[in-house]
């Protein structure tokens, strides 16, 4: 064991916790340190072992119910009947309140697109994580784009561009329907070495846009718009892997 960074900085880099300068320094170090490359690979394989095992355990519905009762949370089932007289008053108040919120939103929305994008990205990452639950990844399992593409016919009202990129190192594994931000989207699943990439696709009326990237909770995402389609790719693979895939889609 010669390189001490293989024990320390590699974790910060892997977890996206280094600032841009230190990350860049570490990347150039990676080019000449096989030990750190091996450590990084080992971390990726550890994370994929964990993702595959799905160790996250949720609370049982019974316990949730018990706790909500403890905490005086009024469930949907115990709604009190509304009296007609108060009904209208509350509706008026609610309407006024909504107008206020809407007005406020209109004013700030100009500057809010950044945080809206972050919210969207976090919904996409959630969808990616959901897809990793056992049995959730694919509705149609096929490496053949001519099987996957027609599968979407009649299930969504648009034709997602389904292509296999096995030769370029991104084998198509299948597709499924997903719901992101209350709309039904097409999700394509690609392999990338040991990683899975979800590509979410839905129609948009906005004009083409160059890719934007980011990361949330250790997951990389990349988003672009092309020919009336919005694309969001997300994975625990490295950012350059996603950029390559974006390039393949855009060719």
């Amino acid at each position: 064991m010669a390189c001490e960074r293989a024990d320390t900085l590699v974790h910060g880099y892997f977890d996206n916790e280094l600032d841009a300068l230190r990350a860049a320094e570490f990347e150039s170090h990676l080019e000449q340190c096989p030990e750190c490359v091996a450590a990084l690979d080992a971390l990726e394989s550890l994370r994929s072992t964990i993702n595959v095992a799905q160790p996250y355990e949720k609370m049982s519905p019974a316990l949730r119910k018990k706790i909500l009762a403890d905490l005086h949370v009024k469930g949907a089932s115990v709604k009190a009947p509304l009296r007609a007289t108060t009904d209208w008053r509350w509706l008026a108040v609610a309407a006024a309140f909504l107008l206020l919120i809407y007005g406020g939103w209109r004013v700030v929305s100009v500057n809010r697109s950044d945080s809206r994008e972050t919210m969207m990205a976090s919904k996409i990452v959630d969808a990616h994580l959901r897809s990793l639950q056992p049995g959730h990844l694919e509705d149609v399992i096929s490496t053949d784009q001519h099987t996957v593409k027609p599968w979407f016919d009649g299930k969504v009202d648009f034709a997602p561009p389904v292509r296999d990129f096995a030769e370029q190192g991104y084998p198509l594994q299948g597709g499924r329907l997903d719901v992101v931000d209350n709309r039904t989207v097409a999700a394509l699943v690609y392999g990338r070495r040991k990683h899975l990439v979800n590509v979410f696709i839905w129609p948009t009326s906005e004009k083409d846009a160059a890719p934007r990237t980011g990361s949330i909770q250790g997951y990389q995402w990349i988003d672009w718009r092309k020919q009336g389609m919005e694309f969001y790719a997300v994975s625990d693979a490295a950012a350059p892997d996603l950029q390559l895939l974006q390039g393949l889609f855009s060719n």
Binding site: P55, E57, R64
Partner: peptide
């Protein structure tokens, strides 16, 4: 964050039953 609470308790205590009590 109820699930997050339960999941942490479950792994710290290594038992679902204990985690239920602790989460509550």
């Amino acid at each position: 964050h109820l699930d997050a609470a339960f999941n942490l308790a479950r792994w710290l205590l290594r038992s679902r039953a204990d985690a239920e009590d602790a989460a509550q």
